[in-house]
C-alpha cells in the first residue's frame, strides 16, 4: 500500500464521509498502542513514524514480527470476530495517525455498500501484502543457504 493507500482506493464522496469519522492522534515513541488479546475496536492510518507489531512471549521481551510505516493501515482485527488484537503494537518513533472508531465505521458501511466494499478491498489488500511478505521472509532468503538446500 502506498502512502495514500486508503484515500486513493476509496471513491471520493465515500472517502469524505469516512474521513469525517477520523481524528488526528499522536503517540510518543515507546507508547503501547494496543495489546495482544484486548478488544479490537479501532484502527489507524499512519501519517508519520513507525509502529512495531509484536507477539507476547512469556518470560521474554515481546518478539517484533513486523514494523509498519507511513501510509499503512494499523489494525484489521476489528473486521471480523473475535475482534481481538492478535498482536501488540508499539510506537517505535513518534507517530501521528488518523484514528477511526471501528463501530462507527461499520455502522456507516451498513448503509453504504460501496464504501463497505472499497474499505474491505483495502483491508484485504493490506492483509494479502503482509501475508506475502511474511511468506517471503519464511524462506530466509538472506540466510546461510539462501532459498535452497544446503549442500
Amino acid at each position: 500500500m502506498t502512502r495514500t493507500g486508503l484515500f486513493s482506493t476509496i471513491p471520493e464522496d465515500h472517502r469524505d464521509r469516512l474521513m469525517d469519522l477520523g481524528r488526528d492522534v499522536a503517540f510518543p515513541a515507546g507508547a503501547r498502542i494496543f495489546e495482544e488479546g484486548s478488544k479490537a475496536d479501532r484502527f489507524w492510518v499512519l501519517h508519520t513514524g513507525a509502529v512495531a507489531l509484536d507477539l507476547h512471549v512469556p518470560g521474554r521481551r515481546p518478539a517484533v514480527v513486523e514494523t509498519i510505516g507511513a501510509g499503512e493501515l494499523l489494525g484489521w482485527s476489528w473486521v471480523c470476530p473475535p475482534r481481538q488484537w492478535h498482536l501488540g503494537a508499539e510506537a517505535v518513533s513518534p507517530v501521528r495517525a488518523w484514528e477511526f472508531d471501528a463501530q462507527e465505521v461499520l455502522r456507516l458501511c451498513e448503509h453504504d455498500p460501496a464504501l463497505d466494499h472499497a474499505l474491505l478491498t483495502y483491508v484485504v489488500g493490506t492483509i494479502g501484502h503482509r501475508l506475502r511478505s511474511a511468506r517471503t521472509r519464511l524462506l530466509d532468503l538472506y540466510g546461510p543457504y539462501g532459498s535452497g538446500e544446503p549442500r
Partner: peptide, 10 residues
C-alpha cells in the same frame, strides 16, 4: 524496521 525491503519504498 522489521519486514521485507520493499516496505521501505514508502
Amino acid at each position: 524496521r522489521v519486514g521485507v525491503v520493499t516496505t521501505l519504498l514508502d
